[in-house]
Design a protein around this nucleic acid. Structure first.
Lengths: 250, 250
DNA sequence: CGTTTATTTGAGACAACTCAAGTTGCGTGG
DNA sequence: CCACGCAACTTGAGTTGTCTCAAATAAACG
């Protein structure tokens, strides 16, 4: 449920002392992210945020929060991946994105959650009481402009998704989606590129506006042609060049 | 071109005296808009903005600015309608929205224009030098939070478009699009609802990710069934209930 | 009044959808 | 350790709706 994901002893951090120690390490990690919210902040601002943050973990398949609920908290993802989705009026589920380390979840000024979020694997987050976060925004205009900028970044990504969905053909759609996901998961150290979690085909289908069957057949073709490979832990990119060609094939 | 749309004598406002008089009337008008940027501002903030604003008009079919150009200005639409679009890597044109009175065009922190904008009819705008706008944002945190909020509103609209594009069938897509456009054009005084400008079918096609032919056939059916009617000046909504039914028909 | 641009209509191909039936993988409990 | 059950994935065959291509008409503009 939304209000109380319990901190699990993934990295023994339950005593106040360890708790804070964990926190600063967390910020260090988040800094590595290129698009992360925290990466835009000064040390001083990060210290202010750390003061009001709580660490929470969420097991795979659990729901962090639901669309429409009162927004008590906002989150920054530290580790793992979540699917973000909305339920449409006609009952369809629209996956609007996949959140990774460094991403801010929920907009602090919104009084209700705009979307739902489920963990795709074991997830580790920084939680902020929305009111605390708002207070900080009021005191720190720098934080406020960082918020405006990352919201605009999200808008840019949403427009990218719009362009994706306008594609008629399944293959370039899939290729563009995979490329973006691979790139957003890319770490300087890991080569070749890999997506470290197993993303259900149903989620991809609801992201791309296709059926599971079409997603499956399209991915099967990519695997057969040795462009990607699937494993228990996630996806590996075998042939970037060919995937790019397919992405641009229109 | 982007840099200098010339003020035309639609409402003789070229002398400094008339120029300012026009301006305050403009703000009064914008306040009526529910989603308008200016409607979120205090009188004091509007006065500050008015100090650095210039009135510009743009003839039908002219381009206000182009994607990728250096962003010298931002705009608030006062009157008329524009189409906003991006050119994708594969050459496709993606229409990302239709701007109306009260809408802010371009994100002040972006150094290059994210999209292009063309007038669909005669358009009247408030122009701000981006640097002036940024200076004001720095001095007025309230303005900054207004910017964050309207950027988030745009994100919400983008997600609505995402849900639209995921639809497989042309009819509900069209119906949902038209409903949203009718509603965003709605004025308390005008009943029944009407879209006061002629939106080219090619633009609708590039918004919904369909071909002109399909757009045409789908609209023709709506007209034949007396749900909407087309005129030189725009579109009229004849049967809201039926249009809603079609929109939800999946 | 001719030229350009936008809209309309038709016929056929094709790719994704639907429905229906397997298969695989994985956690649970006997 | 195996049997079971559930959920995710896979495969097949037929349907359908949009796209494609091509051409005619209508409207807009100078």
């Amino acid at each position: 449920m939304a209000s109380g994901p319990v901190a699990s002893p993934r990295k023994e951090a339950d005593s106040p002392r360890n708790f804070f120690a964990e926190k600063s390490r967390a910020c260090g990690y988040c800094e590595l992210r290129s698009k992360g919210f925290c990466s835009r902040l000064s040390e001083n601002q990060k210290a202010l945020l750390a003061e009001v943050s709580r660490l929470v973990t969420l097991e795979s398949h659990k729901t962090l929060f639901r669309q429409g609920e009162e927004a008590d908290n906002v989150y920054v993802v530290r580790n793992g991946m979540l699917r973000l989705y909305q339920r449409m009026l006609d009952g369809r589920r629209q996956v609007i994105g996949f959140a990774k380390a460094g991403d801010l979840l929920l907009f602090p000024f919104s009084e209700r959650n705009d979307y739902s979020a489920d963990a795709l694997d074991s997830v580790y987050l920084c939680q902020f009481r929305r009111q605390d976060f708002l207070g900080l925004l009021q005191r720190e205009p720098e934080l406020l402009s960082a918020l405006a900028v990352i919201t605009h970044d999200e808008l840019t990504r949403a427009r990218y998704q719009i362009a994706l969905l306008s594609q008629r053909k399944a293959e370039p759609k899939m290729a563009q989606f995979l490329l973006a996901l691979f790139e957003s998961c890319a770490r300087p150290d890991s080569n070749p590129m890999a997506i470290p979690v197993r993303v259900p085909q149903a989620d991809i289908a609801d992201y791309l506006g296709m059926t599971v069957e079409t997603v499956n057949r399209t991915m099967a073709r990519l695997v057969r042609d040795a462009i990607i490979s699937v494993a228990k832990h996630g996806l590996d990119l075998l042939d970037v060049k060919r995937l790019r060609e397919i992405a641009e094939s229109y």
